[in-house]
Design a protein around this nucleic acid. Structure first.
Length: 461
RNA sequence: UCCCCGGUAGCUCAACAGGCAGAGCGGGUGGCUGUUAACCACUAGGUCGUAGGUUCGAAUCCUACCCGGGGAGCCA
């Protein structure tokens, strides 16, 4: 007999006999002559209630079937005479696979703090909140592929290991097979000649450059994979390993790019709202009371499109005593971004055309000579969810920008080559997958939306 | 990396101005009940983050370090 997942059992149209349920015991309540078991198998938020008669063969096992134990129950799915659930399982046979010593099993029926659950990251997906979160994470990932596939984008697996030591963003983690202590007197280059790749290698900080190469062949592509930044960042919004979605479109300008970002965020959000209503409800009740209202603002507004220069004007006129002064040419501080999308507009804001000095070399120089065609999507509570740009497709301009920012064009010969042979205007952006999950669940710490978070000094699981 | 706050029972926290270390939940035992984060009674459980210092006496004051949280920077 195949197992029936709890989700299917709970939504059954009819009674079923026989039925087999397999899962983990969330709680046991003893009554006169029989016990109630609540079993969860991860298929959905809800548990299924199982009735075990004390004088049945299974009854003898009950003393060892405690919170956390893994069991199999065969019996009949029948209408529940009690309140609170439509269906329950009357057990005929129970198999106990693994006990969970109640003296040491860390999960209680009561609510635990997120900080504590992080210390038992191997067990936290067994809680209601984290089970719901990781089901939402899975559905969100699916919605990404669905979105792009429906629009004719191809999924590009950009490399994880990279040899370009300055992709533009962030510090690289080194990848090496060398012994930890180099021979005395060896120069840096000499050392890496002996290494696996014969040169210094690192983990990717972005798939963008590779995506640009492929978009100039396949038209529209996207990457969706892990990204690594060896920054000593210690904030609720940064992780050393995170997942990023990076679409790239040929024959697309900054306006097309902003259209795509807005459409993607709305599509992913709508997908979660439609496919995960029960799991989302948990977050709306216990994590963020305003969650549904906030998601409504994400879904049902046209996002504000605001040139950087106008954003600065709004901030200057706001009269707000910002800790950091607002001035043209300086990057927007977190407090400024929050003011714009949370207080002033109260909806997502796309800020674009930033001064070139505060943005990356590959962003397309505007005709004014001072700004670049960059855009950031700011959303309430999370801040920067998307960062992107139209790319500089003019060989001479790009070459000059590389030199201006103190880099060596020779390291980017292949990136420049794309501008020599059939160059086209193109655009793309990066969307932080975990930041999306924070936005859609109301969870305020990135460590709580990743299965096993990697942050400075944390690599336990 | 910088600034602020914190670390007391398995978990969440209290202990005023230095003077015998507590509660709720969880665990154990017994009772009750088609129960629903069940209920009632009893009970076990602590090197007060670590190391040093001040004091007759330190969970409490001081110093250093470790760990956690929040803010800032970096950005996704």
């Amino acid at each position: 007999m195949n197992r029936t997942r709890v989700k299917a059992a709970l939504t059954s149209d009819t009674a079923l006999d026989p039925i087999r349920i397999q899962g983990w015991v969330r709680t046991r309540r003893d009554s006169k002559g029989f016990s109630f078991l609540e079993i969860n198998d991860g298929s959905c938020l809800k548990n299924i209630q199982v009735i075990v008669e004390h004088n049945s063969p299974a009854g003898a096992l009950l003393k060892d079937i405690q919170t956390g134990a893994s069991v199999e129950v065969t019996g009949a799915l029948v209408e529940s005479p009690g309140k609170g659930q439509k269906w329950e399982v009357k057990a005929r046979e129970v198999t106990l696979f693994g006990t969970a010593d109640p003296e040491s099993y860390p999960l209680q029926k009561k609510r635990h703090s997120d900080e504590f659950l992080r210390t038992i990251a191997h067990l936290r997906p067994r809680t209601n909140k984290y089970g719901a979160l990781f089901r939402i994470r899975s559905e969100s990932a699916f919605s990404v592929h669905q979105f792009f596939r429906d629009r004719g984008f191809f999924y590009l697996q950009s490399p994880i290991i990279t040899g370009s030591d300055c992709e533009g963003a962030g510090e690289l983690f080194r990848v090496t097979t060398l012994p930890p202590f180099p021979p005395a007197g060896a120069s840096k280059t000499d050392v890496f000649q002996e290494d696996f790749f014969g040169k210094e290698a690192g983990l990717t900080v972005s798939g963008q450059l590779e995506a640009e190469l492929f978009t100039c062949a396949l038209g529209n592509v996207y990457t969706f994979g892990p990204t690594f930044r060896a920054e000593n960042s210690n904030t609720p919004r940064h992780a050393a390993e995170f997942w990023m979605i990076e679409p790239e479109m040929a024959f697309a300008d900054l306006s097309d790019n902003m259209d795509l970002a807005e459409d993607l965020v709305k599509h992913m959000t709508r997908h979660v709202v439609e496919k995960c209503p029960e799991d989302l409800e948990l977050f709306a009740r216990f994590v963020d009371k305003d969650l549904m209202e906030n998601l409504d603002a994400i879904l049902n507004n046209t996002y504000v499109r605001l040139p950087y220069a106008e954003a600065v004007q709004i901030l200057e006129k706001s009269g707000k005593p910002f800790e950091f002064p607002v001035k043209f040419g300086a990057d927007l501080q977190t407090e400024h971004e929050r003011y714009l999308c949370e207080t002033h507009f109260k909806k997502p804001v796309l800020v674009y055309d930033y001064p070139k000095e505060i943005k990356a070399f590959y962003m397309r120089l505007n005709d004014d000579g001072t700004t670049v065609a960059a855009m950031d999507l700011l959303v309430p509570r999370v801040g920067e969810l998307v960062g992107g740009s139209q790319r500089e497709e003019r060989y001479e301009v790009l070459h000059r920008r590389i030199l201006e920012t103190g880099m060596d064009p020779a390291d980017y010969w292949w990136y420049l080559d794309i501008r020599r042979y059939g160059t086209v205007y193109h655009s793309g952006f990066g969307l932080g997958f975990e930041r999306f999950l924070m936005m859609v669940t109301g969870v305020t710490n990135i460590r709580d939306v990743i299965p096993f978070p990697r942050t400075p000094k944390h690599l336990e699981f």
